[in-house]
Design a protein around this nucleic acid. Sequence first.
DNA 1: TGACTGTATTACCATAGAGTCATAAAGTAG
DNA 2: CTACTTTATGACTCTATGGTAATACAGTCA
Lengths: 128, 128
Amino acid sequence: MPATIPDEFLDAMAEKLRLFADPTRLSILRALSMRERSVSEVVEATGRGQANVSKHLKLLTNAGLVARRKEGLRVYYKLDDPLVGKLCDLLCATLVSEARAELSRTRRLLDTWSKTSRRDKSGRVKTR
Amino acid sequence: MPATIPDEFLDAMAEKLRLFADPTRLSILRALSMRERSVSEVVEATGRGQANVSKHLKLLTNAGLVARRKEGLRVYYKLDDPLVGKLCDLLCATLVSEARAELSRTRRLLDTWSKTSRRDKSGRVKTR
DNA sequence: TGACTGTATTACCATAGAGTCATAAAGTAG
DNA sequence: CTACTTTATGACTCTATGGTAATACAGTCA
């Protein structure tokens, strides 16, 4: 963490992060990361209720994370903040590496497990 | 955002981010980013209540973000996840650049403002 | 042993916020 | 105009969670 972060920044950081700390909003951002989409398209892509999506989109818009464009009946939203991509890259990288670690841990477990039960003549799995 | 993120990841990402989306926890992480600290030291550094800090530390520990070490009466905590530093760097960079943008915006405003009111002979500031 | 210190936990309150339903508002088509 | 579509909003419920006070627990020292 960089040297010293002024206290006022903590609140700003927390507020910004709170926007990302919700599965529905992440789902919406993921949908918008591919292309600009109307509200109903986002609803369809995320499988969430329309009112719910509309509310989250308002939040994201007010925060400046997405941009709003009206065209006839529809309203189109698209990403409008470089932080979105960076943050997702960082998180995905972290989660992927964690998943990898988890996998190899499981592998090791399975490995030692099969070794210890190798000489069990009964054929049944024997734990410890 | 990377191509397609599986739905299960969204929940994991949100949960992870939720840990950072709180001023008190950020304050704690900031305190721990400098050095290992006992609970009471964290309490002192953050200015939060002891019970409160203890709870947050438990959360962070369970999530694997900080490591716990007991020594006599005291319990020492330290950062234990590379994500912490990376995330903070990213956020700080973002916030700083935003602050800069805000600053130059204000400067421009002041500039045009002083120009429009330059020829006002009364000496009073004249808006539009 | 008892007194003291540092930490964790419990119980509680207050609030924020996510979701949903119903409905309003805005735009289009007939 | 009415009927219809798309989006936004208001009212409401319910849950999660941050904060705090009181207290339990654990370790040290006399």
